[in-house]
């Protein structure tokens, strides 16, 4: 498993091929979203919804050993692309690493400008939710 920083660099490199073209970037984002497996209907329930997103976003987390596994879905294509990036960065990482991470790839790609304030706030809400899960797992692991 690559480190969070390494995965972030990979993402930045991929997006840099699009030369900052907004339309191409959004299409690429949606393509990434399409590759993210859909959550089963049963998981698309209110308790898995991320609060603070304009679109609907569902996030689930489970522990595999000392790693955190994330799955996610959204009802809009662009947001699904965004959450797929978070899954890529954080899923399979140790809770401590997730908690310590300060993501920079959004800024480095310029995605925060492209997606606007509301979606940026939504992105922040998703990140926060993932960190909550990480904290919960950390506490759980410490308790065992």
């Amino acid at each position: 498993m690559n480190s969070i920083a390494t995965i972030e660099n990979e993402i930045v490199n991929e997006f840099s091929l699009l030369d900052g073209d907004q339309e191409m970037t959004l299409y690429y984002l949606m393509e990434l979203g399409q590759k993210l497996p859909a959550l089963p209907e049963a998981a698309r329930k209110e308790e898995n919804e991320v609060k603070g997103c304009q679109s609907k976003v569902w996030l689930t987390a489970r522990a595999e050993g000392n790693k955190m596994i994330l799955e996610a879905d959204s009802n809009t294509a662009i947001t699904k692309g965004l959450v797929s990036l978070l899954v890529r960065v954080f899923s399979g990482q140790a809770p401590d690493d997730v908690l310590a991470a300060e993501l920079t790839f959004m800024k480095r790609i310029g995605l925060d400008r492209f997606i606007g304030t509301q979606r940026s706030n939504g992105f922040a809400a998703m990140t926060k939710q993932i960190k909550f899960y990480a904290l919960a797992f950390k506490t759980q692991l410490a308790g065992i």
Partner: peptide, 14 residues
């Protein structure tokens, strides 16, 4: 099959 938010955002890119 396409959410209105996605249409709006893609039109904004244009």
């Amino acid at each position: 099959g396409i959410h209105h938010f996605d249409i709006g955002q893609m039109l904004d890119a244009r």
